[in-house]
Design a protein around this nucleic acid. Structure first.
Lengths: 136, 136
DNA sequence: ACTTTACTCTATTAAATCTATAGGGTAATT
DNA sequence: AATTACCCTATAGATTTAATAGAGTAAAGT
């Protein structure tokens, strides 16, 4: 299940991508427009800023803005930052790999191989979709 | 993230699919072979029995067995029984649909449309994969 | 310089879900 | 009649999620 954090984060990014210029937008403006708790959104945007997706400006006229063009932000990046692993099991994760406790041989594991197929497919979608693609 | 319940359930089903005949297999045999807590596995197999995937036999020589041929058990069925919705958000779920609180117009929602694409893809995989396919 | 505005950060908490565990009850087979 | 093994309920610890509270800090504009 997609977390609210990811859902809200994507919505906020889309909101910013839709702005014609890159003038800072206040958190309160986004949270009102998208029906998101302002405080919760704060922590989400902070994460995106710390990871180079957003820039921020303090003081009057401040707010958040995209650092890159929407077409240069693939959804893999967004998903991994907000949601974490794209794979459904750690043992098929590229960026968050972990071995299973119970499984003696990954290559012989039915769950592993099935989830590998699912991950490959999902990954392909996120790789080929940018923020620009979903902002229309 | 895939729950342990689903993971263990699939492993148990594969174990049963690999049996040459349909003679009942005791829970303890499966749990030992697959490193699964026996009590936990009990509840999982019970779910599968109540939903027409498994049959059970009590008393000496009892246990669980597949009611259908592995090739007639699509992974969609298994996933929905054990894991629940295949979609990452309820608003794109076929069998567990729910409207979002925050979203005024689904068709205009970027998250909705992205997750719709992911669901279509994942669903296709689970539909075209049977228990037989993953039991080799 | 001062005030306002709005981002920054830490801590806490309520709720939900997951993963088991415990223990007894019941049905069927031998 | 005894044994075996499924059946069922309740509970609990751990983890994650979602949200809230409150104070701090930096920058802009006057």
């Amino acid at each position: 299940m997609l977390s609210k954090k990811t859902k809200y984060g994507i919505k906020a990014l889309v909101y910013l991508a839709k702005q014609e210029d890159r003038i800072p937008v206040q958190i309160s403006v986004i949270s009102n427009s998208e029906n998101i708790s302002q405080k919760f959104l704060e922590t989400i945007l902070l994460t995106l800023r710390k990871n180079g997706i957003l820039g921020s400006k303090k003081g009057k006229g401040g707010g958040y803005y995209l650092l890159r063009e929407p077409k240069d932000i693939p959804m893999t990046t967004v998903m991994r930052l907000l949601e974490g692993p794209i794979a459904m099991v750690p043992c098929v994760s590229l960026n968050f790999y972990e071995k299973c406790d119970d499984c003696p041989d990954e290559n012989a594991c039915a769950v592993h191989n099935l989830m590998l197929k699912v991950r490959d497919n999902t990954l392909e979608i996120f790789r080929n979709t940018t923020l620009s693609d979903i902002s229309n």
